[in-house]
């Protein structure tokens, strides 16, 4: 075996910038795991998710938070889910907890994650995101998978003024460019 240690490099080098009114930060410690619900296996999956992750199985298009609070489960569509886990649980451990009730895939490196926060976060996203993010219709915990500047993305509202944004990791640079570009175009520096 070669004498070489592989080094994980964040897709955006751990980018962080405070624009005054808006903050853009790369989130590098999330683990993302997709769960596919086996055909006719919703009940079994719901049970496994409840017992293994301490989380109810959300309906399509909505999300749920685990009891311990460090794991959010998004139901992306009819039979697919995404776990966003900031608690450090590994893919293998999580997969084991489901005990075969869902098909899991490690998606941590598929996505780059950015957090956009601040009072002007909404104004920045208004230039990018086709989804209506008004708090009345897109409250905390709401998310949408959509297209931002030609890129497939997931937008999740974490707090009133804080959004988690996911985009395919190969386009991390362009995605960040879109976001910081918006900040500049609304007049921030």
């Amino acid at each position: 075996m070669a004498e070489f240690n592989l080094r994980a490099e964040p897709f955006l080098g751990g980018f962080s910038h405070d624009y005054g009114g808006a903050m853009v930060e790369e989130v590098t410690d999330l683990s993302l795991i997709s769960i596919a619900q086996p055909l006719n296996g919703r009940a079994a999956l719901a049970k496994a998710v409840q017992s293994g992750l301490g989380c109810t199985l959300p309906a399509p298009g909505s999300s749920a938070v685990a009891e311990n609070g460090d794991l959010r489960l998004l139901c992306l569509g009819m039979d697919s889910f995404l776990v966003i886990n900031s608690g450090g649980m590994s893919y293998d451990r999580l997969a084991a907890k489901l005990d075969g009730a869902g098909y899991t895939t490690d998606q941590s490196d598929n996505w780059v994650a950015l957090e956009l926060s601040g009072t002007l976060a909404y104004a920045i996203l208004e230039r990018l995101c086709p989804i209506d993010l008004h708090p009345d219709v897109f409250p905390i915990g709401a998310f949408a998978r959509t297209s931002i500047e030609h890129l497939n993305s997931i937008v999740l509202r974490q707090r009133e003024d804080r959004f988690l944004l996911l985009c395919a990791s190969s386009s991390a640079t362009s995605f960040l460019h879109a976001l910081t570009g918006s900040a500049v175009l609304i007049g921030l520096k």
Binding site: G77, S80, R145, N152
Partner: peptide
């Protein structure tokens, strides 16, 4: 096909 969405 919901390509930029849930792939349904």
């Amino acid at each position: 096909y919901h390509e930029q969405g849930d792939r349904a």
